[in-house]
Computed example of a mutant assay.
Amino acid sequence: MFSKAEAQIIKKEFWTAFAEAYPRKWLLYDTKIKDVSFKFYVDNKKAQVMLDIEPKDEEKRKIYFEKIESLKNILHDEFLPDAVLERNFHLETGKIISRVWVEKTGGISLYNKATWNEIFDFFNENMDAFERFFYEYEDYIKDLEVNT
């Protein structure tokens, strides 16, 4: 195991190496939709690429999720076949959000540098596909006046 300080150093090295391997600007928090953002996540067992939908207004969260859910077949067929859509995802904090994500498990770890390239490739391929999906359907997703 690593001390907290050692773990922080490894995390920093990981994200720096990822930025060097794939030097591009990711969409992440710049969706132009308040409280809707793309995220990368990695720990000692899994890597995830996520779209978190977390407006405080429950009705907005519902609408944004339902819009993406209405595009589920397209998302699966053309972009991310393994995407999971969860309307009521419970965070460790107790907060409920909507989340769409893909996950890689098995033999990868933030703390094993030998698996970093595999994680980097997973992040790049899946975030790129997620972003292409979002840009393709952005106007529809953003427009709260157009119902699903």
Rank of each mutant, 00 (worst) to 15 (best):
N124H: 15
F123H: 06
V102L: 02
N73F: 10
T93N: 11
L80H: 05
Y111P: 12
A19T: 13
I97Y: 03
Q48P: 00
K95R: 14
P23Y: 07
D52G: 04
Y137P: 04
R132K: 09
F89P: 01
N147G: 13
K11V: 11
I96L: 06
Y111D: 15
F130Q: 03
D143Q: 09
W26Q: 08
G106F: 02
E59H: 05
P81A: 04
S3V: 11
W101C: 02
K34P: 00
L85R: 01
N147P: 01
K11N: 15
D43P: 00
E131G: 01
E59L: 06
T16R: 14
E118H: 06
E92F: 01
E136A: 04
E59K: 07
D77K: 03
R99M: 05
M127Q: 10
A17V: 09
R99A: 04
V146S: 13
F14G: 11
K104C: 01
Y22W: 10
V36K: 08
K62R: 10
E103M: 11
T148Q: 01
A19C: 15
E54T: 06
I108Y: 00
K25H: 10
R99T: 03
R61A: 07
Y137H: 15
R132V: 08
Y137T: 09
F133Y: 08
L51F: 02
K11D: 15
E131W: 00
F38W: 04
W15S: 10
I141Q: 04
I53G: 09
W116Y: 12
K46H: 04
K72L: 12
I33D: 04
P23R: 04
I10V: 15
T105P: 00
Y137K: 10
A129N: 09
K56V: 15
L75S: 03
I10T: 15
Y64C: 10
Y41Q: 14
F38C: 11
F2I: 06
F123R: 05
Y111G: 14
D143P: 01
Y135G: 05
W101I: 02
D121G: 02
F65Q: 08
T16C: 12
K39Y: 05
L110N: 11
S98G: 02
K62S: 11
I74L: 12
I53H: 10
E54Y: 09
S109R: 01
K25L: 13
L51P: 00
K62Y: 06
D43I: 01
I119L: 12
E58N: 12
R132A: 07
K34C: 01
L28E: 15
P81L: 08
S37G: 08
T115C: 08
L27G: 10
I10Y: 12
V36M: 13
E138L: 03
S109Q: 05
E13Y: 07
S98I: 03
H90F: 00
K46R: 14
M127G: 08
M50D: 10
R61N: 05
N124I: 02
D35S: 11
F134N: 06
D139R: 06
K67D: 09
N126Q: 11
K12E: 15
D139K: 08
R87M: 06
F133A: 12
D57L: 07
D143Y: 03
A5R: 13
T105Q: 11
E69G: 02
E78I: 01
F122W: 06
T115W: 01
R99S: 05
K56W: 14
Y64K: 07
N88A: 04
I63S: 09
A17F: 09
P55C: 12
F38P: 02
K72Y: 07
I63N: 08
A19N: 15
